[in-house]
Write a protein that binds this DNA or RNA. Sequence first.
DNA 1: ATATCGATTATCT
DNA 2: GATAATCGATATG
Length: 222
Amino acid sequence: MPALSSNRPISPLPRTFYARDPRRVARELLGKVLVRKDSHGPRTARIVEVEAYLGQNDPAAHTFSGQTLRNAVLFGPPGYAYVYFIYGNHYCLNVSCEPDGKAGGVLFRALEPLTGIEQMARSRALTIKNPRDLRLLTSGPGRLAEAFDITRERDNGTDLTSSDSTLWIGSDGLPPGPILLTPRIGITKAAHLNLRYLLRGNAFVSGGRASQVRRPLPRTKL
DNA sequence: ATATCGATTATCT
DNA sequence: GATAATCGATATG
């Protein structure tokens, strides 16, 4: 059964949550809730798919070749939004991990809409024909960014640990359910590493069925 | 259902 | 000048 919307209060995750290896952060972010607060009212969605990027040792990471203006947030303190623009078309959301000075991050790849679905649909209606199809709202990194009106200009550097922010991450206490580990999607470098984390059987995971037929999370792994 | 392709621009070599 | 952590449209089986 899919995770359902709960009316439990959502409390922000502390900065210490993010001050760890991105693999651990990625795994534990599954089931948590992304919140957008603005004049349209709250949008919330459950995190169902993420990928870990390992900083200086990871050829696929934006931080592989060192710090630049664009990736500075990933080298800074943990718990802040890193938003980048890709293919001349899409924004993607990450959260910085590891202690200040060490690079690392987690990419948000798919969400399950909970509340504020009408506003997500309005934001996505600019691009898609059928904003009534919930899967099309937030199933993919570019899609979820558009559904939440996430842009580099507005959100890069936002503190995601504060419920005073217009964008933040919290927990409503629901357990995430079974987690699967697969290769990352859409990259050319270090494409074989199992650094994509998803909730097993969740309908909002991106990439179709083939990308979900992989292995359970090993107990010994981060 | 799967494959291929074009869009469109910030960033880095 | 080439590339990119993508998406949506179109073509084909």
